[in-house]
């Protein structure tokens, strides 16, 4: 995209001038989940939500094996200038855990920036996770919310849209309206139920 004839730096300034708040750094968000829970779609929809607000975005998965239940990592990058770096995220600003059982084997807070947080899908309160996660923690019962709106099945609820609502609350960005718009536009099925799940999660996320 950065051909000789396009001067990115000047165009960038004009394109993103309207943004509030303008990001002064690139934000990097890492998702931990299992195949089938929608971590990949979550990373894509979060990118879409930021894109709606006018940011440049990137999102991609790192599969172990492409099978239901196998651990999946996904990444979203947000910036006010074109995102060029194409590598995994090792020092995330924020971490989203779609399935708490992933934490048994994986150090989800690895490389987390000092002012970052870990958002976990669980019925527990943040204080109860203090021994496992040495970072600021937010929790939300995304599985319960997903089941309430019949997203996925009882054994495998699809929690990606609910967790995005919770992310908007915890990170104070993007706006919940942008998240809902991204979900209504991009959810593969049941866009309205998914949007309502996100809204409910936004209102029921618990922090410290």
């Amino acid at each position: 995209m950065q051909g000789k004839e396009v001067n990115c730096d000047t165009t960038t300034k004009t394109i993103y001038a309207h943004l509030f708040p303008p990001l002064i750094i690139m934000y990097e968000i890492r998702f931990h989940g299992r195949g089938g829970q929608g971590a990949v779609v979550a990373s894509n929809l979060l990118a879409e939500a930021f894109f709606i607000e006018g940011y440049d975005v990137q999102a991609f998965p790192y599969f172990g094996v492409e099978r239901r239940g196998a651990p999946v990592t996904a990444f979203t990058r947000v910036d006010t200038k074109p995102v060029r770096v194409k590598m995994q995220i090792y020092e995330p600003n924020y971490v989203v855990v779609l399935d708490p059982s992933v934490m048994l084997k994986t150090d989800v807070s690895a490389g987390l920036k000092p002012d970052g947080f870990v958002l976990v899908n669980t019925t527990k309160k943040p204080a109860e996770l203090k021994d496992k996660i040495k970072a600021r923690v937010f929790t939300v019962d995304a599985s319960g919310i997903a089941m309430k709106y019949r997203l996925g099945s009882k054994v495998a609820p699809i929690v990606n849209t609910a967790i995005l609502g919770a992310f908007a609350f915890a990170a104070k960005m993007p706006k919940i309206e942008s998240v809902l718009a991204a979900i209504r536009k991009g959810a593969p099925v049941k866009p309205e139920e998914n949007a309502r799940a996100a809204e409910e999660a936004y209102n029921s996320t618990v922090g410290e």
Binding site: F51, A59, P61
Partner: peptide
């Protein structure tokens, strides 16, 4: 296109 770095990466 590089596997995953482009094939599965969403970009505007």
């Amino acid at each position: 296109e590089d596997a995953f770095y482009l094939s599965h990466t969403v970009l505007p």
